[in-house]
C-alpha cells in the first residue's frame, strides 16, 4: 500500500442496516511533514517535473487510488 494512505475501521453496531464496509482510507500528503522546505532536495528530471506538478519527489503526492487499501 502507498505510504501516504492511512486506514481505520469505524465502530460498527450489530444493528447497522447495511452490509459492512469495514475499512475507510484517508490520505496524508507529504506537505504535512515539512514545515519549511529544506534546500537541496532531490529533483525530478525537468520533463518529469512538469508532468507531476512538482520538481521535488519529496513533495509528490500521487493520489494513487489503487494503493489506498480501502474506500474513503
Amino acid at each position: 500500500m502507498d505510504a501516504q494512505w492511512r486506514t481505520y475501521t469505524p465502530w460498527r453496531s450489530p444493528f447497522d442496516p447495511c452490509p459492512p464496509r469495514e475499512q475507510r482510507a484517508y490520505i496524508v500528503p507529504p506537505n504535512q511533514f515539512i514545515q519549511t522546505q529544506p534546500r537541496g532536495l532531490r529533483q525530478f528530471a525537468p520533463r518529469e517535473a512538469l508532468r507531476r506538478g512538482t520538481l521535488w519527489p519529496d513533495l509528490y503526492s500521487p493520489y494513487d487510488t489503487a494503493g489506498r487499501g480501502a474506500q474513503p
Partner: peptide, 15 residues
C-alpha cells in the same frame, strides 16, 4: 489531532 491522524495506522492492516 492532525498529528494523531498523520501517525495513525489501523493495527489490523499494517503495511
Amino acid at each position: 489531532a492532525v498529528e494523531m491522524l498523520k501517525e495513525h495506522q489501523d493495527s489490523r492492516h499494517p503495511y
